[in-house]
Nucleic acid binder design. Structure first.
Lengths: 296, 296
DNA sequence: TCAAAAGTGTTAGGAATACACCCATGG
DNA sequence: CCATGGGTGTATTCCTAACACTTTTGA
């Protein structure tokens, strides 16, 4: 059935004569916060290596922010979705494919890119360290893993008659060799009877390009809050692992310690015994587990 | 300190000579799913009016999708964030301001707009029905509240060696007077050892423009899952309300019934008694409550 | 010998859930 | 009178956090 618009055109005729308006359009970048967890060297022969959270950054080779560090990413092209663009960029830069990408959000602050109008469509990904070594070095001249430290400095809450304003101040520190980047971020929640909004803002920033400190903070926040079970941790594990290793990775992700017995109980449904054991100096042999898709 | 790039330019010199590349750029639309809860007429003098969930749609007056219904929204402009654009559009179309806007996500499927490359940056908002009547009619010639029905039709899970695929099929029905829109949507989760992704897809669609059925489904899903307390419901309430009213609104949002005594216990910390009573025919007078920011 | 991890068991407290009541109202 | 909501009390189940304890290993 042909429907005519006010100019008497059918939809097909309309589309044929359609020319995109010449108003201004933004570039849309797909940026990525790629997380991994790696071991720290340990001296004590008894202790298992501690796990630490890392993200991938790339040193900028041109203006603006020349020499600063930025999230990997690139521009979305007309023949792909934002997710596909992120996956493509990740593959080009690290050789990785088949990783879970999750949207973090849109970052569209005015002036966030001094060159021109660029909106960032940010994603996060979790990549197991066992998969990393395979592809290291591709485009990795300037791509470096930075150890993440993200901690709450202070919290402030002010009550008003009709709501409240609560501010959390975080310190973000990223370290790789000599390089040390730091930023202070505020997360502000403004609650009124009919609205409640969360806003991140950068208070200080040393070494990170654009508003990427904000994107990283959002991603870490998301990582911590969304992980109510160890789903996320399981994505970072190799095929076989001990329960303690899984727990360590999970603890690094959510940023707090758990009790061993309880962790084993709650995550029992997500893993299965392999029957093999891992032997380590000075300790009891540990049963190796694998991911299980049991009856979920 | 002046850093020079490979062309010997300072950052300032670089930015002065910078011209945006002439590769293709998308238009970025800020679309909105505006929810409200309204009463249904009741015949029984004893019963309180039932609450029902509504969303706001606008009839398209031009190609493409002429005559179909679409989410309110508009294009993001260079001097505003995506959030601000959504707030501005909402204000222009309904007169509402000061509402909570939350990001639902980016929708960038290739070909989602037949005219040209348009990416939708979607938000959702909760608006109390008491605030609606004030501003009705502004631009509301074509803006209509549709009653929402969103229910699970079937669920399917298939296990593989290395993961599983789980699909939920939902029926989305929107009704306003004679107008009835319907869509069938699939939510598919693909889990593999190192990735887990959720994808929505439209199986059938009668009356909704673009991929807006998908956006609506995402927003409803978000609404239901995120609401672990009645925070969201409180945003829809007028200044004073009875606990039963609050419970009704909350039940409509999450799509299930709760027990009265338990609801009162769990939400006790979020409200405070006003001391006033509401009298209704055939019932005990009910204590009116207001929102409270107590010691949260 | 001993620090550290592997592994199992028990307990107390709190939240969620389910019922079971009684009260007041006005068509 | 009585359907309906207003409001309170209480038993039960479930989950979680916290603690306690034993075993094994190799430098």
């Amino acid at each position: 059935m042909e429907v005519l618009d006010r100019n008497g055109l059918t939809e097909r005729e309309f589309l044929e004569q359609y020319r995109a308006g010449d108003y201004e359009r933004p570039s849309v970048a797909a940026d990525m916060v790629v997380f991994t967890v790696m071991d720290r060297e340990e001296d004590n022969f008894h202790k298992l290596p501690d796990k630490e959270l890392y993200i991938l950054l790339i040193r900028r080779g041109g203006h603006p922010f020349l020499g600063k560090w930025a999230l990997p990413g690139g521009f979305v092209q007309p023949d792909e979705t934002a997710e596909q663009a992120a996956a493509r960029e990740l593959n080009e830069e690290t050789g990785l494919s088949d990783v879970q990408l999750e949207q973090v959000g849109i970052f569209s602050d005015v002036g966030r890119d001094p060159r021109s109008w660029v909106i960032s469509c940010s994603h996060m990904a979790l990549v197991g360290s066992s998969r990393l070594q395979i592809h290291a070095g591709d485009d990795a001249d300037a791509a470096v893993w930075f150890k993440v430290s993200y901690r709450l400095l202070r919290e402030h809450k002010e009550l008003f008659e009709e709501g409240y304003v609560q501010t959390w101040t975080y310190e973000l520190k990223l370290r790789a060799g000599e390089e040390e980047l730091a930023a202070i971020l505020n997360r502000t929640v403004r609650a009124k009877p009919n609205s409640k909004s969360t806003v991140y803002s950068i208070m200080s920033n040393d070494g990170l390009a654009f508003d990427h400190a904000k994107i990283i903070a959002c991603a870490i926040g998301r990582l911590r809050e969304q992980s109510d079970d160890c789903e996320a941790a399981l994505q970072l594990m190799p095929e076989q692992f001990t329960m303690t290793e899984l727990q360590q990775v999970y603890e690094v992700i959510i940023g707090k310690k758990l009790h061993q017995a309880d962790f084993r109980r709650t995550s029992a449904g997500l893993v299965a015994e392999t029957g093999h054991y891992r032997r380590k100096a000075g300790q009891l042999p540990a049963l190796l587990y694998r991911r299980s898709w049991g009856e979920g």
